[in-house]
Amino acid sequence: MSGRHVLALIPLPAATLDALRRDYTLHYHPDGWAGTFPAGVDPANVRAVVTNGSTGLSDAQMAMLPALEIVSAFGAGYENVDVAAAMRRGIVVTHAPGANAATVADHAIGLLLALARGYAPLTEAVRAGRWRTSRAERPTLTGARLGLLGMGRIGRLIAARAQGFDMTLGYHGRQPHADAPGRFYPDLTELAADSDFLVIACNGGAATRHLVSSEVLQALGPNGYVVNVSRGSVLDTQALIDALAHAAIAGAGLDVIEDEPEVPRALLEHPDVLITPHIAGRSPASLIAQRDALLASLSQHFAYVPIEFAVRAA
């Protein structure tokens, strides 16, 4: 076991760390690898890296690990792992598709309800003694129009939950899906214009950076809400701040921020913005599923058998 050195570059649950330490020589550096190589680790020994979509692993970092054989993303996302470089170097990349999808979908619906019904500002109003003056009507989800940016595992689960509210569904993605619920919109701005709520549930990365732009937010309109449970890079933060400042949209629910954990004060102080600290995918069940996928991938790799959750070439 001692010859199987694993470098973990992200925070991991205690049970996952225990499992890794049982079967591997673990080097745990939860703050990542910024600039210099993590202290106390011989890069020539590292055969596996555990990371995630946000932290990733670059071609330059792979080049510093001559024994590297496998990069495992803890979770579904792997957008900042240089997959092309890994494949060129003969390095396997794995992830945990679908492990946290249901939890993310639950979180998205929770943000939609909380925004529409005003849970946070109304709680503050009651605390401030404004019970009688804070009882104006609020929008609800039932019968509303939901636009989904992304119709993958998470998008489909959000759609299924939304159907329980009799919401009208539309979605935008790279292509339509014959078995997907709702209408496909080839143009995201048109989808936003036809939506009361816009939920971002697509992949991150360069291809989707700032896909939700000022134009999209303007189309969503002054009664519309945007929710992001994807990656912070998909939503243009400055465009969002400007839209909120000019009441171009009604509010936002954000589990991810472009420069997280730094959050612009304008968002923190806005009464109709809800922010959670990138935990949409975190639940006991999802973390167990992610742990099991990680351990299975490492075990399969070192046993020289096919890896179930390997990322395939595009």
Rank of each mutant, 00 (worst) to 15 (best):
A99I: 11
D106C: 06
P284F: 13
P261K: 04
R22H: 13
A14L: 13
V104I: 14
P30Q: 11
A207G: 08
N45G: 07
S286A: 15
L169D: 00
A252Y: 08
T276S: 15
P176A: 10
H95F: 01
E269I: 05
D106F: 00
L17T: 09
P186M: 08
S214L: 06
Y119R: 07
A162H: 05
V226Q: 00
I275E: 04
L113K: 01
A303Q: 14
Q300Y: 04
V81D: 03
A48H: 02
V49R: 08
D196R: 01
G3V: 11
G3R: 13
G40Y: 09
P97E: 10
G221C: 04
I241H: 09
A76L: 11
P306H: 11
M151S: 09
Q163V: 03
V81A: 08
A136G: 15
G77K: 01
R127W: 05
V227K: 00
D23M: 08
Q300V: 03
R47D: 05
A313W: 02
I200Y: 13
L157V: 01
A193P: 09
T16I: 04
V6A: 06
A243G: 12
A245E: 12
S233C: 14
A266Y: 02
V50C: 13
H29T: 13
V227H: 02
D292A: 10
G173W: 00
S233H: 08
